[in-house]
Amino acid sequence: MELRQLEYFVAVAEEANFTRAAERVRISQSGVSAQIRQLEHDLGATLIDRSGRRATLTAAGAVVLEHARAVLSSAQALRRAVDDVNGLIRGRLVVGMVTACTVTPFFDALAAFHLAHPGVELVLFEDNSDRLIEGVRTGSADLALVGTAVATPDGVRAMPIISERLVAIVADGHPLAGRRGASLAEIAEFPIVCLPPGTGIRTVFDQACADGGVKPDIALQASAPGAIMDLAMRGLGVAILSESMAVPHQERLSVLMIDDVETHAVLALIWPTTTNPALQELVRYGRTAFGGGT
C-alpha cells in the first residue's frame, strides 16, 4: 500500500468519477484505475463500485475512505514538521505597510526573508493604519507596519520601532517661523496640512485637539509626508508630522515643538496573537532588521 494509492482513492471517492479524479491528481485515468485496483488487491476488497455511471463506494470503500483521509493528513503534518525543522518554510504571507512610508529596515527584512525562504510567497500592499490594524486582527493580513497612538494596539502583538512627539512645520516668513515651540491653540489659528484620518499622527493630533477643545482648520491632506512638507513650504498651511520626518527639511523650514501635545506617535510592526512557522520567521527577521533582537 502506498500514499499515492490512498490519494487517488480519495480523489475518486470525492469526485465520484475516474476522469475528474485523474485531472485532479494530474495523471492519466488508466494510471488512477491501475493504482486503485492494486490497492483493492492489497486490501482484499472491492472499494469502488464501477457498475453505474458514477463511481460509488462499496461498504468496504466507505470504511477505507475515513482512514485514508487520516493517513494523508498525518503524512502532510509530518512533512510540515520536517520542513519546519529544516527551515524549508512554505506558504503565503500578506504584509501591509502604511501608505507612503519608506522604511529601509522593513524592506531589508522582507528581502532577507525572501532570500532565505523562497518557498514563501510575499504579498505587499499599502493602506492606512486603521485598516491595516483591523486586517491583522481579522486575519486578512499577517504582518503590518503601522502608525498608531499606542505602543500595542488592542488584539495584536507589536514591536514599537519609533515613538516621537508631534511637531509643527512652517515656511520662512510664517508668523510662527523662528520659534522653538507653540501651543496647540496657537497653531490652530492657521490652516493645517496633515496626514489623512486613519494614520497614527493624525489620530494623535485629532485626539489632542479634542481633549484641548481646539477646532483646527484642516485645509489640505496628503498621504505622503514629503507632499505635506512641500505644501507647507509653499505657505499653504502648518504641517503636522513627527520629529524624524522633519529632520531632512530643517534647513528650509521652521520646526516647532507642540508644547501641549505629549502623546507620542508610534511606528510599530504588528502581527496576530496566533502565528504559523512562516510568520514567526518573518517576525524574527523584522526584529533583527530593526534591532529588536531575535
Rank of each mutant, 00 (worst) to 15 (best):
S51N: 02
S51D: 09
R53F: 09
R54P: 00
R54D: 08
A55M: 10
T56D: 04
A62G: 12
A62L: 04
V64H: 03
L65W: 04
H67M: 07
H67A: 15
A68T: 01
A68K: 02
A68N: 06
R69H: 12
A70E: 15
L72C: 06
S73M: 11
S73K: 13
S73D: 15
S73F: 04
A75V: 14
Q76V: 08
R79S: 15
R79P: 00
R80S: 14
A81I: 07
A81V: 08
D83Q: 12
V85T: 06
N86E: 15
G87F: 03
L88N: 02
L88F: 00
I89L: 15
R90C: 05
G91K: 06
R92L: 09
R92N: 06
R92P: 00
R92T: 13
L93N: 02
L93E: 01
V95S: 01
G96H: 01
T99K: 10
A100Q: 11
T102H: 13
T102I: 11
T102M: 09
V103P: 00
T104D: 14
T104S: 12
T104K: 11
P105G: 01
F106V: 06
A109G: 02
A109W: 01
A111Y: 12
F113A: 03
L115Q: 13
A116H: 02
H117E: 05
H117S: 05
H117Q: 08
G119M: 14
G119E: 13
L124K: 11
L124R: 15
F125K: 13
D127I: 05
D127T: 04
N128D: 15
N128P: 01
S129L: 00
D130E: 14
D130F: 06
D130C: 06
R131P: 01
R131Y: 09
E134M: 00
G135H: 07
R137F: 07
T138K: 15
T138W: 09
G139I: 11
G139F: 06
A141H: 08
L143F: 14
L145Q: 00
V146C: 07
V146K: 00
G147R: 05
G147Q: 07
